[in-house]
């Protein structure tokens, strides 16, 4: 019995040691100027971007095997990082996890197939793309935020004054406190959740073919709202001032259109789905 336990411990030790030997860490530093561009292409693995304290880009990479390398280059104010898969690499052995510190005003482009993509506390443009990648963007202001995923979930949290464009085929898209001149989400079957106040004088277009759309807003929101589900149903918990004219037939239960709050600062909100449900909910909260 004791021999068996010892053999197990040895086997586990060998596996752990092998993993530690195969895993390696790399660190790169790049001095950049204002509004630098940073691009990270990583087929397998996560990328987490945070602000640095000075005009430096710091890249910490954890390579999970020797079948992948990190290629890096700097061209003026632009830094490019790429995971270079060597022969025989797969989604496990080709994995690299990155933590990247960039100046807060840098524009970033992140690409991963399967790893999670995360960016926070920045005010430069953010472009994230990944087929199955989970995307998380938070505390970004005065910037373009572009996200493309196939089925990875997308979470946007506290995006202020943003130009936000999200394209997702089947991933769920959740936005909390997202506002700006343009907020646009297009999905095929993913659910879209918006929790916020639709800002001031912005344009909000949330569209899903078969996914449900749910917007939860405070009663004091100022917005011109149009909602329509071609084959599904719509629900509206908030009294709207009906509009005299709409570009679509307002069939009861299938569409609604109206205004709420102060017209002078109201945003345009269009909620559209083909066969999903639309629900405009009231958030019980004082301003």
């Amino acid at each position: 019995m004791a021999n068996k336990r010892a053999a197990k411990l040895v086997a586990i030790g060998v596996i752990v040691a092998g993993t530690l030997v195969a895993e390696s860490r790399k660190e790169y530093h790049f001095a950049v100027g204002p509004r630098a561009g940073v691009s990270v292409m990583n087929p397998y693995g996560s990328i987490w971007v945070k602000p640095s304290l000075n005009n430096t880009v710091v890249v910490n990479a954890v390579l999970h095997s020797d079948k992948v390398e990190v290629d890096n280059s700097q061209n003026g104010n632009r830094v490019d990082i790429q995971s270079h898969l060597l022969a025989g690499a797969d989604s496990d052995s080709g994995r690299v996890d990155y933590e990247v510190l960039v100046p807060a005003d840098a524009s970033i482009t992140l690409h991963s197939s399967t790893g999670s993509l995360r960016a926070e506390k920045l005010h430069g443009d953010v472009s994230l793309e990944g087929a199955g990648a989970e995307v998380d963007v938070r505390d970004v202001s005065d910037a373009h935020v572009h996200v493309k995923t196939m089925n990875g979930p997308v979470n946007l949290d506290n995006i202020q004054n943003g130009h936000v464009e999200v394209d997702s085929l089947s991933g769920e898209v959740t936005m909390r406190g997202v506002n700006g001149p343009l907020v646009q989400v297009v999905s095929t079957s993913g659910k879209i959740n918006y929790i916020g106040d639709f800002g001031n004088s912005g344009e909000y277009r949330l569209t899903s073919h078969s996914g449900d759309i749910e917007a939860t807003i405070p009663e004091w929101t100022s917005a011109d709202v149009s909602a329509r589900s071609v084959r599904g149903e719509v629900h509206d918990d908030i009294p709207l001032q009906p509009k005299n004219h709409t570009w679509f037939p307002v069939d009861k239960g299938r569409a609604f259109a109206g205004t709420m709050g102060r017209v002078a600062v109201s945003s345009t909100v269009v909620l559209r789905t083909f066969s999903g449900k639309i629900h405009l909910r009231k958030r019980s909260e004082n301003k």
Binding site: V186, S187, H209
Partner: peptide, 26 residues
């Protein structure tokens, strides 16, 4: 003449185009 349906169709094609783009990128 249903503007929403036409937009839905355009969106659907754009989504398909995005799917191809993702596959091609790799």
């Amino acid at each position: 003449n249903d503007e929403d349906a036409r937009r839905s169709l355009m969106d659907a094609y754009q989504q398909k185009s995005m799917l191809f783009q993702m596959a091609m990128d790799r």
